[in-house]
């Protein structure tokens, strides 16, 4: 599979990039690490006429603490560099863990944070060559009017596998979106849409320029967990990020976000409520895990059965919450 012909523009400033985006809106894609876009282009899933390379723009390659104590990360920051960044490790270790879990070292060496946040949704029936796709009519994601993964459904069920997404939402991060002449900042949660064919709110002339992680006034801790079939180069079967704030076993606030089970990260509000009401204990963890099962809503059978996804969500909630409790030194095991 080879790339088809396209124009390539390497702007020297973010401003130049935004101008190009505006002029070619609808026929332009930004390229940073290229680990997602180029693969999709080779499959003929995207054929932009213009590629704007933003990977080396200095404006997008920064990580710093702002005066309020919040962490600002440029979208162009490389994942391998972030994985080793001491500021990120100190301020948002859960995001660092999520980043470390992405793909493989080689891919992280190329990929960027913004690229992972915007990672296209995936589907067995979509991420295929032209030859493969010729066997079936077009689906919602390729311009048709059906979903092959969930037959009869009125929307695309392609799965959002971005590992950083649940972590950013749990951390309460804001996404900075820019276009020529304007900028908007939206909560990470609102950046995603529960629709596989159009999974972010990005407009054709917009690009994701950075992320703001509130660290200044935030108390509490965040943990991230990912379960994938293989240890290296694999998308998650399911992932979770949880942010809890409180004293001891009391819990003032809780945010739990599941990744890779649907077209958008799933924010478990009822599950969080269980914890706020009951505090953090062995019993409440069990109750929260069960609450998560029913809170997931309708799930697709894409990549794994809906039943297994539910089992996995329950396990993820349980395990991520356990990481907030100090592990007992000796674990008693019963014999069969």
């Amino acid at each position: 599979m080879r790339l088809l012909r396209f124009e390539h523009f390497k702007p020297s400033s973010l401003e130049e990039a935004l101008t190009a985006m505006q002029e070619s809106a609808g026929n332009v894609r930004v390229l940073a690490g290229g680990t997602d876009l180029l693969v999709n282009m080779k499959c003929g899933l995207e054929q932009p006429g213009l590629i704007v390379s933003i990977g080396s723009l200095p404006e997008l390659n920064t990580i710093a603490e702002d005066p309020s104590g919040d962490l600002r990360i440029g979208a162009g920051m490389n994942l391998s560099e972030l994985a080793e960044n001491s500021l990120l490790a100190a301020k948002a270790p859960a995001l660092r863990d999520a980043i470390k879990s992405i793909a493989s070292q080689h891919i992280r060496n190329m990929a960027t944070l913004g690229g992972n946040v915007c990672l296209d949704t995936r589907c067995w029936y979509y991420n295929q060559s032209k030859l493969w796709r010729a066997s079936r009519p077009a689906c919602y994601k390729t311009g048709g009017d059906q979903c092959h993964a969930t037959r009869g459904s009125e929307r695309c069920h392609a799965i959002n596998s971005a590992d950083t997404a649940p972590a950013l939402i749990a951390l309460g991060a804001q996404v900075v979106v820019q276009k020529k002449g304007s900028q908007r900042q939206i909560p990470a949660e609102d950046f995603y849409r529960d629709h596989g064919a159009r999974h972010t709110v990005l407009e054709p002339d917009e690009l994701l320029s950075g992320l703001v992680i509130p660290c200044g006034n935030e108390t509490g801790k965040t943990h991230f967990l990912k379960i994938s079939r293989r240890q290296g180069i694999d998308f998650a079967l399911g992932s979770i990020a949880a942010h809890l704030a409180g004293n001891g076993s009391t819990c003032h606030s809780a945010r739990l976000v599941i990744g890779s089970l649907g077209s958008a990260p799933i924010v478990l509000e009822k599950t969080a409520q269980v914890l706020v009401e009951a505090g953090l204990s062995q019993e409440s963890i069990q109750a929260a895990a069960e609450a998560a099962r029913s809170e997931l809503g309708v799930l697709t059978t894409l990549f794994s059965s809906a039943g297994y996804k539910r089992d996995l969500a329950q396990v993820l909630v349980k395990r991520v919450l356990h990481s907030f409790i100090k592990k007992p030194t000796t674990q008693k095991r019963t014999r069969r």
């Binding site: 067995w124 991420n127 295929q128 493969w132 079939r229 293989r230 240890q231 290296g232 180069i233 694999d234 998308f235």
Partner: peptide
């Protein structure tokens, strides 16, 4: 039909 989705074990396994 790909090395990504056909879960052939890799060295970590």
């Amino acid at each position: 039909p790909s090395r990504l989705d056909y879960k052939l074990p890799r060295p970590f396994e």
